[in-house]
Write a protein that binds this DNA or RNA. Sequence first.
DNA 1: GCATGCATGTAAGAAGTTACATGATTGT
DNA 2: ACAATCATGTAACTTCTTACATGCATGC
Lengths: 193, 193
Amino acid sequence: MKKDTGKTRYILLGLMSKRPQTGYSIKKSIENEFRHFWQESFGQIYPTLKLLVEQGLAETTETETVQNGRQTITYTITEKGRAELKRWLSEAPDVEKLRYEILLKVSFGTATDLDTIDQHLDAFIGRNEKALAEMEGFLAFFNGLEDQGCDRLGSELTALCGKYLYTAMKDWAVAAKKKILDQKELEHETKNT
Amino acid sequence: MKKDTGKTRYILLGLMSKRPQTGYSIKKSIENEFRHFWQESFGQIYPTLKLLVEQGLAETTETETVQNGRQTITYTITEKGRAELKRWLSEAPDVEKLRYEILLKVSFGTATDLDTIDQHLDAFIGRNEKALAEMEGFLAFFNGLEDQGCDRLGSELTALCGKYLYTAMKDWAVAAKKKILDQKELEHETKNT
DNA sequence: GCATGCATGTAAGAAGTTACATGATTGT
DNA sequence: ACAATCATGTAACTTCTTACATGCATGC
């Protein structure tokens, strides 16, 4: 890492803006809340935290406590860090670059391997149903909360996005399977006439 | 590029399986058909084509014609290449790793910058509507075709996926805007009482 | 005794983007 | 004249993942 024009810094700043964090707690937060829409590895997190301190966007809390056998380093966002976070928030987000490998397989496989594609679609439906159930779990949890705080809203909207997305992907795969079945029947007819 | 365990090779093989290609035509094909779900740069394409030849998965057609001022190099898939493509097709596709920057902004901005987030959502709706219109254009085009060939099916399913996806994202953003409006009213009430 | 979770970190390498260089042709 | 399209390619760089090293505590 050298110039760091990437986005890692902003998810770190964003999480730190809610409460002071350790590298480890940041990783866990991302896995819990953002897993479906964002991911970062330790190999990105720890060096970026150091960078943020160098740039005065975060500080290490002086009390580096030893909790369970291992030291923990707690990072706190600075005012400069909050300003940088706010600046980034006001910028238009990048257009997301999607990479759906299954669509490549569908595109290249429908001419030759209809059965294989059909199986991939089944697995895809399963995956998306599972993710959807998870999102609905989150939403039910948020609806159960009485607290109407702002912090709830962000997490709720994220889960809602997942609900819409995974529903759509599941529905697409079901529709795709139907089209593939039609195609198979067509091929069968052509053979028999 | 050294070990090449990535996916670039497969989209190249897939496109070559339909017809011989030049690096340039591959780039254009990806931009035309897969832009929304896959992307490759020249910096990936040209070195990977060389690699495919080295590995015997593709061949350069002997007739390297000079067409318009510049030489063109046409690559043709070999039998070994087709076998490798088929092997990859039968493997389960990777789980897609999405990165929706807008969701980070929503998550970190709902506590402090509701208006900004609302504007980002408007832009997001616009983008998704545009993409949706494009997908519907493709679908209308495919429906207009009388030819029921297999090759059509792949492209049609890709466009259909786009239709489902972009509809969902647009609908989510509309729903999100509503929730944000509720939140604003709530904050307003709290102030006035 | 062994796996898992907590916790930090680095090094190597893979994967991907961007900018540049070259240069003819065609359209505005 | 200038931009765009066709066409190939490389180098520098960024970004990201994976594997590894360390080591205590806890539960099975």
